[in-house]
Design a protein around this nucleic acid. Structure first.
Lengths: 340, 340
DNA sequence: ATTGGCACTTGTTTTATCTAAGTGCTAATT
DNA sequence: AATTAGCACTTAGATAAAACAAGTGCCAAT
């Protein structure tokens, strides 16, 4: 891949991103100071290498997945955020009243708004939350609510109906034992320690300790499983993209976008320790062969999560990557200010 | 409107509901034991009266909004639920493990599934919830969580950052005063009594009582405003209806269905004390001129809300009305069993 | 290595033609 | 007075042919 070929591929990808129409040789020759025939020759080479494709024998060229991949890894200039994009995001972070998690959501709404892609914020209670307190509130003789609160201020509650053979005071007593023994325990270890440390204790003191134990076990379990909140913005924005002028395609995508669990899954899947922006093109997205998902992990106090943008494969990679990057930097600087 | 005319209109509406195609005179004459010309004459009358319309000069007839209205008020047989529909709903209520509010959600999912309409469950904390307890949990010196719990077991929480000039103990003290004075107060009156009864008391005992007051005021306010949860099932099911083979129409509707706040609004709007099933056809829906919304209020312990079905104007009124009716009856009988 | 030229493909748009479904009206019939 | 058969007429939709636009590959010349 010599320089001209790189430039040509870059130009093809970016033109296609902008216009959504297959790119022909004539449109490019003026920018490369050569004839359309020369471009055609080079294009034939790029096609042979698998970076671009034709829709039919006499059509212009469209980037292949391999072409997009090569583009995002070697050709695009990611750090280039435009002034107006920056301004819009800046405005959100400028408002110091706003909680960071709300700022993120607002940012992603903005991104969806100005780009016509769909954006996702998937927040998860971080595993570095520790148990602060569990409260039992009696609603009636047979109903109670268990409230679990962590040191980061995350609260979840669950209602129970208890069998009449159990005295509610025993449950309250158990909650006190738990509060004494397990405060400070990382929230995802609570279940285990409940079994290993607490169960033997209450066995001696509590009648029907199995049932009582199960109530708490299930409350904590719920906390750990129920710990994600998801915001999807601009689901229908995506339909404005020209690829969705086809009604079958549109319905297919609408269906997938309607499935929150599925979006949650693809937004969190395969997230390891990686901290960079990840780009999943087409099939790699595990969501739909015709979309690209760009994703970034974030970390704020008590919450870790991902932000993601879902767009057509022909999405504006440079713009999205640079905006996510910018958000990340802003988060960092705000965290420093707050001293966490 | 003599009987034959009624029957004819009924037949036209029901055929159109089934086929989505304009109804012609030939298709009907066999069922009415007369010639197509006779039907045509009657149709001309029905059109003159405004119950049916033509798409173009030589097309078959389609019910007008007035026609649908007349149909649902005078012609359809609402009590007729089909065996298989009943069975599917019955199955849900048969499971006595299921909380009533979850049963409702499941029912509406089923309805959406089997009819290809969109369904909505809008639950609201009922105004007959009363304050049971407010708890303050300190996260750090400057952060706290206020937890509000009602006698029906509904719990909401809100986090605050407090100015360093305020001692957290004063807040806890205030919460104790509130618990003493306001337990049992209907939740939507708490704000008022906080102002009238509690404020004068804490004025004497609490330093900077204004700020402290505001914390509680805002927590209760949040509870009252934040008190709805909405489930929308089968948003994209609706797109399977033939009216949405048109891409512009489809996008327009998709946009509206994406706006949860808007759906919430139309689901609760104009709800007075009425307890019957309400049908809003076309513009009456306040949602979209091309849909019908069928809606019913429900009441279960601690929660009042509405269930609604959104479909094309050409929706199967009889089927939906009878299913909502059935759900209502089942709710009643379950409530009796539980003795509320 | 680059270029101009040209035959060839394919998708898209336009136009014309044909068909199916259904209506309104008139005159005849019951 | 209500019903009916018959027929001219209208419109949407489907099918086919023609015209057009965009672009390619390849060859021979530069």
């Amino acid at each position: 891949m010599d320089e001209r070929r790189n430039n040509l591929l870059k130009e093809i990808v970016e033109t296609y991103i902008k216009t959504a129409k297959p790119v022909g040789s004539k449109a490019l020759c003026c920018q490369f100071d050569c004839s359309s025939a020369t471009i055609r020759n080079e294009m034939a080479n790029l096609e042979e290498l698998g970076y671009i494709e034709k829709n039919h024998i006499s059509s212009g060229r469209v980037p292949s997945e391999k072409g997009y991949r090569y583009y995002v890894e070697n050709l695009m200039e990611a750090e280039k955020i435009t002034g107006s994009d920056m301004l819009k995001l800046q405005k959100i972070f400028a408002n110091h009243e706003l909680k960071l998690s709300d700022a993120i959501t607002k940012c992603m709404e903005i991104i969806s708004d100005i780009t016509n892609y769909t954006s996702v914020v998937l927040g998860k209670n971080s595993s570095d939350n520790a148990l602060l307190q569990v409260n039992i509130i009696a609603i009636s003789e047979k109903e109670l609510v268990a409230i679990v609160c962590t040191d980061k201020g995350i609260v979840e509650n669950k209602a129970f109906t208890i069998p009449s053979t159990i005295n509610i005071n025993e449950i309250i007593k158990t909650s006190e034992i738990i509060n004494k023994m397990l405060v400070g325990t990382p929230i995802n270890e609570v279940s285990r320690r409940l079994e290993l440390d607490v169960k033997p204790i209450i066995k001696k003191q509590i009648h029907q300790y199995e049932t009582v134990y199960n109530i708490f076990y299930s409350a904590f379990n719920d906390f750990v499983n129920n710990n994600s909140n998801i915001h999807i913005s601009g689901r229908t924005k995506l339909f404005e993209q020209p690829e969705y002028n086809d009604i079958t395609e549109l319905k297919r995508l609408a269906n997938k976008l309607d499935d929150v669990k599925f979006i949650e899954k693809v937004s969190s899947k395969d997230i390891g320790d990686e901290n960079e922006i990840k780009i999943y093109i087409g099939d790699e997205s595990k969501f739909d062969p015709n979309v690209t998902i760009i994703r970034k992990k974030y970390h704020i106090n008590g919450e870790e999560g991902t932000i993601a943008v879902i767009g057509p494969k022909r999405m504006d990679y440079q713009r999205i990557v640079s905006m996510l990057d910018y958000i990340d930097k802003k988060l960092d600087s705000r965290k420093e200010e707050n001293g966490n």
